[in-house]
C-alpha cells in the first residue's frame, strides 16, 4: 500500500468533477421539492439526458449541442411526470418511480449501437494566469466549463430563492398550496415550471456523466446517481449551500475510494465501492434524528396532491 501516491491537489480537483453530475441533478430537485413536488424520477431523467446528450454530441461532434439536447430531452420526460401528477393528480411517489423505470428502459433503447463509441471531447478551459496560481489554480481553474456552470447555477438558485419575488412565490406554493391558491397564485403552473427546471438540470447532470466523466455510453451508467441526488436534497435540508457541501463531500468519498483502491489498500474493493453510499445513509440518519430545524425546513406541502377545490 502506498498512500503517498495520492496527490491531494489532484484529489480535490477530481472530487469537483465527480460531484458535478449529482450537484446539477440535486439543484434541480431542490427547486422541484421547494415547490412541493417530490419527483423520484431523477435517476430516469438523468439517464435520459445521458443518452440523448451522448447521441447528439456523437452525431454532430459538438458536445455543447449534446448538453442542450440532454436538458431538453429530460425536461420533456419530466413534463410527463408533471402532467400526470399535477393535472391528473396521480400519486407523486408512484409516478416518480415509474418515471425512473421508464427512463432506464428508454435510454437503453435509444443507446443501442452507441456502446463503445467515443464522444467528442469537452475541452478543458485553462484560464490564463488564474490557472497558473499554485495549488488553487489547479483546484479551481483547470476544469471543463460545466463544473463552473454548475457552481454558478447553485449561486443562481440561492439568489432566486432568497431574493426574488418569483422565488418567494415558489417557496410559498411549496409551503402551503391552499394558502397560495387563496392568494391567487397558480399552484399548478408554478409546480410545472419547477418540475421542468428539475428535469433540465437532471438532464445536464446525466450528460455530464456520459460526455465528460466516463466518457462513453453504457446501459444503466448513472448507477444510482439520481438517488444520491435525491438523498442530498434532504441532507442539505433544502438549502443550496449545504447542497454544494454535500455533493462535494460525496464526490470526495467516491474519488478517495478510487484512489485507495489504486493505492492498494487491503480492503476488499466491494467495501470501498459501497462506502460513499453507506456514508450517505449514515449522514442522513444522523441528520434526520436531530429533529427541529431540519424537519422544520422541509416544504410544508411536499408530496401532497393539490386540488383547487379544497
Amino acid at each position: 500500500m502506498d498512500l503517498s501516491s495520492i496527490n491531494p491537489i489532484v484529489l480535490i480537483a477530481s472530487m469537483m468533477a465527480a460531484a458535478t453530475p449529482i450537484l446539477l441533478a440535486a439543484t434541480g430537485e431542490l427547486i422541484c421539492e421547494k415547490s412541493g413536488v417530490l419527483n423520484l424520477g431523477v435517476e430516469g431523467m438523468m439517464i435520459t439526458g445521458a443518452v440523448c446528450g451522448f447521441v447528439v454530441a456523437a452525431g454532430t461532434g459538438n458536445p455543447w449541442l449534446g448538453f442542450a439536447f440532454a436538458a431538453l430531452a429530460a425536461l420533456a420526460i419530466s413534463l410527463i411526470f408533471g402532467i400526470i401528477t399535477q393535472v391528473l393528480m396521480a400519486n407523486q411517489v408512484a409516478t416518480g418511480l415509474g418515471l425512473t423505470l421508464f427512463g432506464l428502459g428508454l435510454s437503453a433503447l435509444i443507446g443501442q449501437g452507441y456502446q463503445g463509441v467515443r464522444p467528442p471531447r469537452v475541452p478543458r478551459i485553462e484560464i490564463p494566469y488564474l490557472s497558473d496560481i499554485p495549488v488553487l489554480g489547479r483546484i479551481l481553474f483547470s476544469h471543463d466549463p460545466m463544473v463552473h456552470i454548475s457552481l454558478l447555477l447553485v449561486v443562481a438558485v440561492w439568489v432566486f430563492l432568497k431574493f426574488t419575488r418569483a422565488g418567494l412565490i415558489l417557496r410559498a406554493v411549496g409551503e402551503n398550496h391552499h394558502a397560495a391558491h387563496a392568494l391567487g397564485y397558480r399552484v399548478v403552473r408554478v409546480r410545472l415550471m419547477a418540475i421542468a427546471f428539475g428535469g433540465a438540470m437532471a438532464g445536464l447532470g446525466g450528460a455530464y456523466l456520459s460526455l465528460v466523466r466516463v466518457p462513453q455510453w453504457t446501459e444503466g451508467m448513472t448507477a444510482g446517481a439520481g438517488w444520491i441526488a435525491l438523498a442530498l436534497v434532504v441532507f442539505a435540508a433544502w438549502r443550496p449551500w449545504r447542497l454544494l457541501l454535500g455533493a462535494y463531500l460525496f464526490g470526495g468519498i467516491v474519488v478517495l475510494q478510487l484512489n485507495l483502491q489504486a493505492a492498494g489498500v487491503r480492503i476488499p474493493v466491494e467495501y470501498l465501492a459501497m462506502s460513499p453510499y453507506l456514508i450517505t445513509i449514515l449522514v442522513l440518519v444522523i441528520i434526520s434524528s436531530s429533529r427541529g430545524r431540519n424537519a422544520l425546513n422541509a416544504p410544508g406541502s411536499l408530496n401532497r396532491t393539490y386540488h383547487a377545490s379544497q
Binding site: L168, A172, H178, A179, A180, G184, L296, G300
Partner: peptide, 29 residues
C-alpha cells in the same frame, strides 16, 4: 389580484399564511 387592485381585501377563516416564511414575506405574498 384583480379584486385586490379594485380595493377588496380578505382575511381568511383558515389563515392563508405560510409557517416557514417570515412575517414580511407573508405580507409581500
Amino acid at each position: 389580484s384583480a379584486a385586490r387592485a379594485a380595493g377588496v381585501g380578505m382575511v381568511f377563516q383558515h389563515f392563508s399564511l405560510f409557517d416557514a416564511l417570515d412575517v414580511a414575506e407573508n405580507v409581500a405574498l
